[in-house]
């Protein structure tokens, strides 16, 4: 198991290297330079600034320099945000994004599992219909539409939560709900399908024949077995929550990374784009790695090492 995890971590860094390289060259293809908007700079001044940041060098040299810095953990300094080092920039804005992202994932997954489980147990009743309706809503309404709707009703009209503010937990409720809708819908749908299947399986009948009550059959046998495919979709779901958060952070004026990402791309802030891409990729690969390890804990059939025998 340890050997497997070490191997996966090695792959993680290899993947990051490839992503960094591709992003670097793609970014250079973006039209304009970081200083296109600075009309007041004369040609001489522009040349000086470019030389200062090494942008007068050939792209390959720039690439080698950047990667050299990257290996030492140096992501460069931002062109736009007060010349701050990118690592510091990310560090400062990490907390709000992580809080909303994690809250949305937890709320979405837990509620989704419950909703899907109830739908499966009460198959073909109004509970099932209602649960299906909710999960389809969650899946089909884009997070930014939901965000605006929540803002309008819960904040603007009924004054339950602040419209766009970032200070305490209260202010994180609406963005969390807006982001949680998609994972909730997804998890509920997967959970229902799988649990309907599991509930009609032979081992559930055997569990019933042992004298387990209907409730015990669900909690002791059906839930865990139904969770296996749900775990699989957590990785891809984390991706959509992260991308969703970029827009939602903007709508709720949350000082998070997503908001900064959008800004850095529109202004050709090369080091920030690079830094954030690498950081996002790192998070994603990490989530997938964790999901893979988690998988083995839930399903003993794919536990690693010694051919399944620990």
């Amino acid at each position: 198991m340890t050997k497997y995890i070490l191997k996966r971590i090695l792959y993680l860094f290899l993947t990051l290297f490839i992503i960094a390289s591709i992003t670097f060259f793609l970014m250079k293809l973006l039209p304009g330079t970081p200083f296109t908007n600075q009309n007041r700079l004369s040609h001489e001044q522009l040349a000086i600034v470019k030389a200062q940041y090494g942008l007068d060098q050939p792209v390959l040299i720039q690439y080698l320099r950047y990667m050299g810095g990257l290996f030492q953990g140096n992501l460069g300094t931002s062109f736009q945000f007060n010349n701050e080092p990118v690592t510091q920039l990310i560090g400062q804005r990490l907390a709000p994004s992580m809080q909303i992202g994690a809250q949305a994932m937890i709320v979405g997954t837990v509620l989704g599992i419950l909703l899907g489980a109830f739908a499966a147990i009460r198959k073909n009743t109004w509970v099932d219909t209602l649960a299906t309706f909710i999960s389809i809503l969650g899946l089909s309404i884009p997070s930014f539409v939901l965000a605006v709707l929540l803002q309008f009703y819960l904040a603007f009209k009924w004054h339950i939560y602040p419209v766009a503010l970032w200070d305490n937990f209260q202010s994180s409720v609406l963005p969390t709900l807006a982001l949680a809708a998609l994972p909730l819908g997804n998890v509920a749908r997967f959970m229902r399908t799988e649990m309907v299947d599991v509930m009609s399986s032979d081992y559930i009948e055997l569990a019933k024949s042992k004298g387990n009550s209907s409730w015990q059959v669900v909690t002791k046998h059906a839930l865990r077995n139904s969770l296996i495919p749900v775990v699989t979709i957590i990785g891809p779901m984390a991706v959509s929550v992260m991308t969703g958060s970029m827009v939602v952070e903007n709508i709720f004026s949350i000082p998070g990374i997503g908001e900064q990402f959008v800004k850095s791309i529109t202004t050709n802030d090369y080091p920030t784009i690079m830094g954030l891409t690498i950081f996002y990729s790192f998070l994603l690969i990490l989530v997938i790695l964790i999901v893979d390890i988690l998988y083995g804990f839930i399903d003993p059939r794919i536990r690693l090492g010694n051919g399944g025998k620990e």
Binding site: Y203, L206, G211, N212, H221
Partner: peptide, 19 residues
């Protein structure tokens, strides 16, 4: 069930909880 009257099922491959 399981105490006074118990049942042996037909298909051993699917009758046990895999987890």
């Amino acid at each position: 069930r399981g105490d006074k009257i118990a049942m042996i099922f037909q298909d051993p491959m699917t009758s046990l909880d895999p987890t």
